[in-house]
Amino acid sequence: MKTVKKRFVLNFPPQSGDKPLSYRLVKEFDISINILKAEVKPGKTGTLLLELEGTKENLKKGIAYLEENQVQCQPLKKKITFKQEQCINCGNCTGVCFTGALKMDRSNWELKFKPEKCVVCELCVPACPLNLFTIDFN
């Protein structure tokens, strides 16, 4: 079966810490999980950036299962805003982006942004001299 890889930001409610949700994703839905970033505060909300890999059908079921358990799942792309129309293509953000999500196209020297490569390190936010990036991780 063909699998796909997608990145999601998961917001956990305070009471969800007692359930092994990620274990169920692996066991029941055959989804491979790569944790790229985690901010978990015991007793409070937690946020995870996960790369999920599985069949389209299983990913859909897995996400539905998480949502049934009051975990908000949003594709990573929706958590990042980049005001591209104001970008001057200076390149400052590419200096700090070690995943290659932000790169200069060396033919026309325009900035190319691939949110699917982002790991929400958030270094681009202060690096952009025009303040064009907003990341809503929490």
Partner: peptide, 25 residues
Amino acid sequence: LQSGSIKINGQKVRTAPVASLQKAR
């Protein structure tokens, strides 16, 4: 510098412009 990396003390280091060549062109 425009190739994307340079060598410093034998170490490969990623380069980034901080001025816009697209606008300059």
